[in-house]
């Protein structure tokens, strides 16, 4: 590796607060919010067998 003045890539990432803002929001939005809301949307109703066994219909 040459000892040039070139800034390492990771240092650029560490210093780029706008990129970090984007990453932070994205991880949260996808992993917590969107995934969570999708799971809420997928919940099934109470199965009919259970209802029938009690209500006899």
């Amino acid at each position: 590796m040459s000892e040039e003045r070139k800034t390492p890539f990771l240092q650029l990432v560490f210093d780029d607060f706008i990129l970090l803002l984007f990453i932070g929001v994205a991880v949260y939005a996808v992993s917590y919010l969107i995934w969570g809301l999708m799971e809420l949307a997928w919940i099934p109703p109470i199965p009919d067998e259970i209802k029938q066994s009690l209500l006899g219909r």
């Binding site: 919940i43 109470i46 199965p47 259970i50 209802k51 009690l54 209500l55």
Partner: peptide, 17 residues
């Protein structure tokens, strides 16, 4: 395990139970 329900439906089921 979770099911969607309504207060009316769940009340009815509990009463029957």
């Amino acid at each position: 395990v979770t099911y969607k329900t309504t207060p009316e439906e769940f009340y009815q089921l509990t009463q029957a139970f």
